[in-house]
Design a protein around this nucleic acid. Structure first.
Lengths: 232, 232
DNA sequence: CACCTTGTTGAATGGATGTTCAGCAAATAA
DNA sequence: TTATTTGCTGAACATCCATTCAACAAGGTG
């Protein structure tokens, strides 16, 4: 689950381990060890000694590459946010042009292994819980997906226009967004009995029920709606 | 937000504050101070000194009434869980007999001021985040609403039978449950811009979209479905 | 009143943890 | 090779915090 103990990839001669590594490499290594520790021990019990040990390095290493524990945690949160962002945006780039295809694509991207795995989800919630009392986390948690939410609002509005649904697009967007975060929470809390596959089926079922003209009950795309997608 | 500093209610003569109070009173006082501190400072920063100060008492008090910090936190979580349970169960007792009335009632109870206020929601998520790495919290978090979830499954199944919806009741129940927890999360993270009133509208809109034969778009009950409610 | 029980205090203790930094060693330059 | 830069180490330090406990005080009981 972690980066292997030593670095053979950095000019290491066979058998010998390189002691020094470029800054970016160590920073990534420490950030990943931080995520591991957050998932394993939780926020309150994560110490710099744990992180250093997880990375196979010495105690003082974090204060050398990051100024303080606080900075390390902030950069870890930033790392998670960046990865989350990149994931759904790249998925969106490869999606079809219709609103239905787009919302389906980003919903599934939200549940993809890349971002929705045990380590990262646990780390996210560690930060969420602390964000309430830490202004420095709030900015990052919010921006986590302002774009994402705006897009959902746009897409629900479009689908309403296409199929004449009776709902208020803003409220349905709120709900759909909350649904996705709620699924993450269940995945974290009940990782033994609630799997990512079940979460995917749940999202697909929700698409089928919320937008019956666009999706069938199992979440597959209905072809009856004429997508005026290419409209730029 | 806290219990007033001193106890005039316990045989206190006017002007004099009583020093001693019955055990149950102190325990409740300390549990409430704990919730306050969790909401204000977060889990990681909540110390026994904070709790004691919040309750207007001295440093060693917690270890006298609770064996340890761990025990205090466990009992605080239990307190929240009990209050949560009692809230929706008592609301349910006063609800109509139809599945639609029941699901609407408990959904709204979930968002009532009694359990869904800033302090308590923040405290819940503090525990959720730690539960991943604390088996002792998991038992309580799970049982939080096993009954609640089972009831939702039952009700969605009933409504499907009544109206011939195409969905899989289990998946819709999963989704509806996740939606509610997701709304709590948003209420915590965006307490400045997302209000409980908006959450209520969101839940009502979801009812309207998921169960269109039972609810109109704004979540009000449709009378067209004949409720075979009294069936025991 | 004297005696006992019991809630409460706050200083002392021991352990854990973030941070510092003098020294060391690997890579690189001269 | 020697000198210099740069990444890294781990012991030392200061702080914070949960826990303990001897002393105290407020009721209750005789």
């Amino acid at each position: 689950m972690n980066i292997p103990g030593d670095i053979e990839t950095h000019g290491g001669l066979s058998g010998k381990t390189t002691r020094r590594a470029p800054k970016e490499f160590r920073r990534d290594q420490l950030i990943n060890a931080t995520i591991d520790s957050l998932a394993l021990r939780g926020y309150a019990e994560t110490t710099l000694a744990d992180v250093a040990e997880g990375a196979g390095l010495s105690r003082g290493i974090v204060n050398f590459h990051f100024e303080s524990k606080e900075k390390l945690l902030l950069e870890t949160l930033q790392f998670l946010a960046d990865e989350y962002d990149a994931n759904w945006k790249s998925a969106l780039a490869g999606a079809g042009q219709s609103a239905a295809e787009k919302i389906r694509t980003i919903s599934l991207a939200d549940l993809s292994e890349k971002v929705c795995n045990e380590r990262q989800v646990a780390a996210w919630f560690a930060f969420f819980a602390e964000a309430k009392s830490r202004p420095s986390y709030q900015a990052l948690s919010w921006s986590r997906d302002g774009d994402y939410f705006d897009l959902i609002v746009l897409l629900t509005g479009k689908m309403k226009a296409e199929a004449g649904y009776k709902f208020d697009p803003l409220r349905i967007a709120d709900g759909f967004y909350a649904l996705q975060e709620g699924l993450w929470l269940r995945l974290m809390l009940e990782s033994k009995t609630f799997t990512r596959e079940m979460a995917v089926e749940t999202i697909l079922a929700a698409l089928g029920s919320l937008f019956p003209a666009h999706f069938s009950a199992d979440g597959s795309l209905e072809k009856t709606i004429k997508t005026k997608g290419g409209k730029k």
